[in-house]
Amino acid sequence: MHIIITDAWLAKSQALHLSGLKLALSGILLSVVVMLGSVAAYHWVFLQGVRQGWPGFESVARLVTQGDVDSKELYMRENLDAMARKLGEMQARMLQIESLGERVAGLAGLKPEEFKVQPGSGGALVSGRDITLPELMSAMNQLDRVSGAGVDWLTVIESRLFDQKIQRTLVPTEEPVAGGRIGSPFGFRIDPITGRSALHTGLDFPADTGTPILAAAGGVVVVQDVHPAYGNMVEVDHGNDLITRYAHASRVLVKKGDIVKRGQVIAEVGSTGRSTGPHLHFEVWVSGVPQDPSRFLAAGETLAAAQLVPGNPRRP
């Protein structure tokens, strides 16, 4: 194909020679340009019609966008259902934690019913209709409040149990001589030196010289002295006006101001002071009054036996 282009002003002519291939490519290019122009024009007219509210365009817009809206609603519904199921599982778990908290509260000496942070409520999230987002958010907020209250209560229980544990460690229930037998008990007896009736203010534990003397409970050493009657003596303050005294030691291993733990070796058995042979003289004083140490030691044996009972919740 030959195309001649003539310029009237310049009085020139130019000839274009198009082969069959070039002609086909030109037709395709022209078709593509027309197509893109048509699409652009349609898109512009459609958007203008929707924005300006031209008659007939609103219904067409709904038909075009309905599929996207349905897809988004389905996606939202699936996510809401999944979140609702997870929330139901969390609520069921909170009920289990609440039940456990009630039992632990009873062990701590608190009223178990006071641990119920949401009496009469709870359970999995079950609905006969689709749950809405506001309903889901409300349930999550309630669960957050309930869990926060549960944490506060468990903190109180932990504090109470810790206090009880500390109190137990400060009560002299540990035998001051491991496996030792009791010689002279607490109370009135015939004094082995004078031969007269006298009050024996503690327990005697006969043992070989050098046998370890153990702290009956944790506390602070308030006295480490040599006494005319008690010999090498140690006193440990356990708080609450409760003091234990360990007398006639051959050697003392602690000094005034030391902090000792239950069962710690603080001295060794001897026969210093007013004594007829190697033994430990052990006393318990409460508010300045001597008490029978055997009652404290018996309480420790009872507690140890209870902890060895199978199924006991306090078993170590």
Rank of each mutant, 00 (worst) to 15 (best):
E174P: 01
E98S: 15
V289N: 05
D258M: 05
L136R: 01
A149M: 11
Y42S: 02
I97L: 04
D237T: 04
L143E: 12
T272I: 02
V222L: 04
I28V: 12
L23R: 06
L95G: 14
A139R: 09
D70S: 06
V151G: 11
S275P: 01
Q167W: 13
V309E: 04
L30P: 03
T6F: 15
P172T: 13
A15R: 12
R251A: 11
G88N: 02
P119W: 01
S121M: 12
G150A: 12
A215W: 00
L161T: 03
S59E: 12
L80F: 12
H248K: 06
Q167D: 14
G49M: 06
D163S: 13
T201Q: 13
S159K: 11
R85N: 11
L18N: 02
I193G: 01
L29I: 10
S271P: 06
I193K: 00
G187D: 08
D163G: 11
R103Q: 09
R85F: 10
W54K: 07
A139S: 08
Q291C: 02
V117T: 15
N312F: 11
A24M: 07
K255M: 04
G231L: 00
T65S: 14
A267K: 00
S271M: 02
L161Y: 00
G270S: 00
V226Y: 13
G195Y: 08
V284A: 01
T194K: 08
A108D: 04
K72F: 13
E268K: 14
F296K: 03
V34K: 02
G150E: 12
G210T: 05
L10A: 12
Q224C: 10
N141G: 14
R103S: 08
K22D: 08
K116Q: 10
V309N: 03
T132G: 09
T272L: 06
V33N: 04
R62S: 10
L10M: 07
F296H: 04
I243D: 00
G122E: 06
S184C: 02
V260I: 00
T201F: 08
A216I: 07
P172W: 08
G123A: 09
M83C: 15
M137Q: 15
L125V: 14
Y246S: 09
G180L: 07
K255I: 06
M140G: 15
R274S: 03
T169L: 15
S184E: 00
T302M: 13
G67K: 09
Q291R: 04
V265Q: 11
F282W: 03
V309R: 07
G300Y: 10
A105G: 00
E102Q: 09
L63Y: 03
R129G: 04
Y75R: 15
S31V: 15
T132E: 06
K86P: 10
G123M: 08
V286M: 08
L125Q: 06
G101A: 11
T211D: 04
A267Q: 02
V151M: 14
S159G: 13
V284G: 02
G27I: 10
L107R: 03
G37H: 04
R77E: 12
N240Q: 14
N79G: 13
I5D: 09
F57T: 09
Q118H: 12
A217G: 11
A299W: 02
M83D: 15
E113Q: 12
Q224H: 08
Q14S: 15
H248E: 01
